[in-house]
Design a protein around this nucleic acid. Structure first.
Length: 710
DNA sequence: ATGCCTCGAGCTCA
DNA sequence: CTCGAGGCAT
């Protein structure tokens, strides 16, 4: 902005008309910075100087004066706000098609009306989820923005529309009169930023945040602000989808031509527009656009098909509700409303009490949703959803169903704020929420849910990997009183198991062998299986390799533990505290007696430490290594293998079907992406071979196919 | 204060 | 696998 010539009075143009235009543009920019973003770019005195020069010029050259000049409106209250605006051309809605058959029906009706002639070309566009507005330009200057209203009469929202950066205040090369229609919407990223800001501000003020429900409602609400400053803070966007009125413009024969022309004038037009010629192609385009639903930074709820030829459009005309030359192909809703019947709390395997919503079942995002997690007490409070509320439920793509928020206008008068239950629904002990924690927990060590949870975790694939001992069998054995903790597994009464329905000799023998086999699992797996707070797979392996024996871990002081690389006071304290409990020590004793591995494997002659201190991430399936095999190979050579790519990653090894997020991140961070052969080389030498897979695959990756199920 | 990492929850899909 | 929360190092 410092180099803006118009800001410098000395570099002014010789011709008054040009200078006037320059001044107006500069003033508009500075005014926006000052009034709308509260962030002045130049001193007030300089601004006043520009304004004075403009006023002088306009006085000297009355033919250059204009209604829209900043001299006419600076400081003026937007008293025209929300006054009724009668649309020159009614803003009609669209007929809907919910499947391909209805799309074909529409085409057949048109063809009948045209007595057998068929449209030669169509335009297929996204139907954005925002709100429709009409913009009027006179001599290239934006003079009015209006909402759709009832289609005939809308509301004047000019003051707010001017704050939308996508919408040009002036159009160079525009005809004397120009009216366009389009959709004001909010980008998903802007919506997220905006809601994050709400949370931050509420926290700073010590209040509960008021979250906005979705980008569409936020955009609509933003345009209804009395103060344009509020609207300016919302980062709205705009796409034009129709030229509705033009006087003195070029000759335009098709809709797509008109959009192209508007685009060339600087009016934002959506890039995802197709112009197929046959209905068959139309269907393919509709499908193609529909598949982009989760790949864009904005939402759309349908695809609009229009007859491209403007003369044909005129011939087809409209019925009472909508034009005959266009139809909206509606996509299945990803968001809808339903009744929140109740809020209940479930106890997780670790004792965490998670509130969840019981919903009147609704079909949304391709599945029927009957329950949805509400995460924790604060989430329920922030959303302020109450039993009896009508709520908005959302399930976008492969995202988890979510209760977005209540529809306050539908709230029953007697709906009371929901209270977190006092007792565990499983064991009826008091629930505890610690200071500063988000979660509420059942802390009863003997809670049946937690007994089961601990045993399931112990038997899980990532811990002791006991086959045939899944959720269901654990539940049955615990219920039958056969096991109460993990050490009971090693003295399980198999005769009793044999008596249980569904168990025959063979299945019992399988189970016996699996349990027996688990005794020799490495020490790290055992430690992980114990489920010590703050100790996951990584920290468990660290404990095993640092202390070598269970005994030494049990006897380690907090300082000893904190000396482990990557351990701080919190983890050290958690480990120490866990082993300090006599019940834990007794359990370890029983496990040792049962014959479980209590020492780290004698590492013997180890592989050369070629990867000392570096980290290598693996994604996808490798031919010569199992998932853990590759990780082990890296660890054995002194390297690390975290689950995600970061700046410190030396290389990403990809097999077949690598995770897209890892590959993308590696590319973004310019981390070498290597194939299995290069990985083998890397293990051997610690060096990356000259040619990387990145170079090979360049230009190939962005063309990932459709993400939907195939 | 920042960025990397692990933990732990919840969920999908073969 | 992905995501948010939180621990730890810098």
């Amino acid at each position: 902005m410092a180099s803006d010539p118009a800001a410098d009075p000395d570099s002014g143009s010789t011709y008054p008309a040009e200078r006037v235009a320059e001044l107006r543009a500069a003033i508009a920019g500075h005014a926006a910075a000052y009034y709308e973003r509260d962030d002045p770019e130049i001193p007030d005195a300089d601004y006043d100087q520009l304004l004075r020069e403009l006023a002088d010029l306009e006085e000297a050259h009355p033919e250059l004066a204009a209604e829209t000049s900043p001299t006419q409106r600076v400081g003026a209250a937007p008293n025209a706000a929300f006054s009724p605006v009668t649309h020159t051309l009614a803003m009609m809605s669209l007929h809907n098609a919910f499947d391909i058959g209805e799309l074909q029906g529409w085409q057949a009706r048109m063809q009948r009306r045209l007595e057998g002639r068929a449209p030669e070309r169509f335009a297929v566009e996204l139907k954005l989820d925002g709100l429709a507005i009409s913009l009027r330009y006179q001599d290239g200057a934006l003079v009015q923005g209006a909402t759709r209203g009832d289609g005939r009469v809308g509301e004047d929202v000019t003051h707010n529309v001017r704050t939308i950066s996508d919408i040009p205040e002036r159009i160079v090369g525009a005809p004397p009169v120009l009216e366009v229609r389009g959709e004001v919407y909010m980008k998903l990223s802007s919506f997220k930023t905006f809601n994050d800001l709400q949370v931050a501000e509420a926290q700073a003020a010590g209040k509960e945040p008021k979250l906005y429900v979705n980008p569409r409602n936020t955009a609509a609400g933003s345009l209804r602000q009395i103060s344009a400053e509020v609207t300016a803070g919302r980062d709205l966007s705009f796409f034009c989808y129709q030229l509705s009125l033009v006087e003195g413009g070029p000759e335009l024969r098709t809709h797509s031509e008109s959009l192209e022309w508007l685009g060339s004038l600087g009016v934002p037009v959506n890039e995802h527009t197709r112009t197929p010629t046959t209905m068959h192609e139309v269907e393919a385009c509709v499908e193609e656009l529909a598949n982009m639903r989760h790949d864009l930074d904005y939402e759309f709820d349908g695809v609009v098909v229009k007859v491209d030829d403007l003369a044909l459009q005129a011939e087809l005309g409209a019925d009472a509700k909508a034009p005959r030359w266009a139809i909206a192909y509606k996509l299945p809703p990803e968001e809808c409303t339903t009744r929140l019947v109740d809020i209940e709390v479930s106890i997780g395997p670790s004792g965490q009490a998670t509130p969840f919503a019981i919903l009147e079942p609704v079909f949304v995002g391709g599945v029927t949703v009957a329950t949805a997690t509400l995460h924790n007490e604060d989430q329920v409070a922030a959303k302020d959803v109450r039993p009896g509320d009508t709520v908005i439920v959302r399930r976008a793509g492969d995202v988890i169903p979510e209760v977005v928020g209540p529809v306050l206008s539908e709230r029953p008068a007697d709906a009371a704020r929901w209270q977190f239950p006092v007792d565990c629904p499983v064991c009826h002990h008091r629930l505890v929420r610690n200071e500063g924690a988000a979660a509420t927990n059942c802390v009863n060590f003997g809670c049946p849910r937690q007994i089961r949870g601990r045993i399931e975790h112990f038997a899980g694939r990532t811990a002791m990997d006991i086959e045939f001992l899944g959720e269901k069998n654990v539940d049955r054995f615990v219920s039958a009183g056969l096991i109460g903790d993990v050490s009971d597994l090693y003295r399980l009464d198999f005769d009793k198991v044999l008596e249980m329905p569904g168990f025959q000799e063979k299945s019992v023998n399988n189970l016996r062998a699996a349990i027996e086999h688990s005794k020799s699992r490495p020490l790290g797996n055992l430690i992980f299986g114990l489920r010590i707070p703050e100790v996951g797979q990584v920290n468990a392996a660290l404990l095993a390799s640092s202390f070598r024996t269970m005994e030494r871990i049990m006897d380690a002081s907090v300082e000893d533990l904190a000396a482990v690389e990557g351990f701080g006071p919190v983890i050290a304290e958690a480990v120490h505290g866990w082993f300090a409990d006599p019940r834990a020590r007794a359990l370890i004793g029983r496990l040792a007696d049962a014959g479980l591995t209590m020492e780290a494997e004698a590492s013997g002659l180890k592989a050369e430490q070629t990867l000392e201190g570096v980290s290598v991430v693996v994604s996808g399936t490798l031919a010569g290594y199992s998932r853990d095999g590759a990780t082990e190979a890296i660890l054995a050579r002194g390297g690390k293998s975290p689950a995600s790519v970061s700046k410190s990653t030396l290389a990403l090894v990809i097999g077949t079907d690598p995770g897209a997020s890892k590959v993308n991140k590696a590319e973004a961070l310019e981390i070498p992406v290597i194939d299995e052969a290069a990985f083998v080389e890397l293990l051997k030498t610690g060096e990356l071979p000259g040619r990387t897979a990145t170079a090979d695959r360049h230009g190939e990756l962005p063309e990932n196919g459709p993400k939907g199920p195939t």
